[in-house]
């Protein structure tokens, strides 16, 4: 009888060590970047233009580029994603069509970014003649973040109690009025969560942006301008060894942004779940 209990104690220790290592590695990465990067970061770094390819100066154009590119992607992906989620949840029964659409969404979520990059490059940059531009980058990014928005919106819409829909219908609302006035407002936190996760994905992406939006280090003035996002800037600084110092600084900004965004998204989703469970 002693043996199984002894064995359990051993396994528990081993599993604990595995957990500790995992958590340690992940924290180490963040702290390492922050420790080396934060000293570089100040208002000047955030708000001034880079000099000498990024050896000196700040990252302001990259911040602008990141924001604009992300905005384009979100503005297009949100109606598409939320519309799909509404269709899947409110207008069809589970059946062949929904499972095909879901499978398509999953595949889209699994496609490597480099493939999106290739696709966006051929379709938008070359074929449609948008060139390396914010528009090409934003459109390609739309496709990448679409699955995230669909999935979270679906979850959010699913969590709205069925009784709300019945009440609204019984008060003389049409299906669409019910969706607009009751379902979507109640699902809003979840939908916003999806959008925020899409924003995070768009900020951290590198390969797609290089192939579709290029990497010109200037403040863009139109949608047809090329831009360089923070991730791309960081990649170029680090890979070409231009400036380790500024690379750390950019990475620190990137990580802080992404963590804050993800934390906010998580908090919102948690609130939605608490409300209806």
């Amino acid at each position: 009888m002693l043996k199984p209990i002894f064995y359990e104690q051993v396994m528990k220790r081993i599993l604990f060590i595995g957990t500790a290592i995992t958590v340690f590695i992940l924290f180490f990465i963040i702290l390492y970047i922050l420790k080396n990067g934060l000293p570089v970061v100040d208002l000047e770094f955030l708000l001034s233009s880079p000099k000498d390819f990024g050896r000196a100066g700040g990252i302001f154009p990259c911040i602008v580029g990141t924001i604009v590119l992300t905005l384009v992607a979100i503005i297009i992906a949100t109606p598409l994603g939320v519309g799909t989620a509404i269709y899947l949840r409110e207008y069809t029964r589970e059946g062949r069509l929904t499972s095909i659409i879901r499978f398509g969404t999953e595949c889209l979520a699994g496609i490597p970014s480099i493939i999106f990059g290739l696709f966006g490059f051929v379709l938008f940059v070359v074929y449609l003649g948008f060139g390396w531009s914010i528009l090409s980058g934003g459109l390609t990014m739309t496709f990448m973040i679409l699955p995230t928005i669909i999935r979270t919106s679906e979850e959010a819409i699913k969590s709205v109690p069925a009784s709300y829909r019945e009440v609204s219908l019984s008060l003389g609302a049409t299906k669409w009025q019910t969706i607009i006035k009751v379902v979507l407002p109640s699902a809003l936190p979840g939908i916003v969560t999806g959008i925020i996760l899409g924003v995070a994905r768009s900020i951290e992406e590198t390969a797609v942006v290089i192939f579709t939006a290029g990497s010109v280090l200037r403040i863009p003035t139109s949608l047809f301008d090329s831009c360089r996002t923070m991730s791309v800037h960081f990649y170029i600084l680090a890979r070409e060894g231009i400036s380790m110092e500024n690379a750390y600084g950019t990475a620190a900004i990137l990580i802080i942004t992404i963590l804050l965004i993800n934390m906010f998204a998580y908090w919102l989703m948690h609130r939605l779940m608490a409300k209806y469970s």
Binding site: T19, T22, V23, L26, I29, I30, Y32, I33, A200, I203, E204, E205, T206, S231, F234, Y235, A238, M244, A247, A251, L254, I255, I258, L259, I261, N262, M263, Y266
Partner: peptide, 24 residues
């Protein structure tokens, strides 16, 4: 506490992982 923390870390940009690989 730990599950969301681990999930948050899925959001670290891949270039940062690559960079850690290079320098560490």
């Amino acid at each position: 506490v730990l599950k969301p923390v681990i999930e948050l870390l899925a959001g670290i940009p891949s270039v940062v992982y690559g960079f850690i690989g290079m320098v560490v």
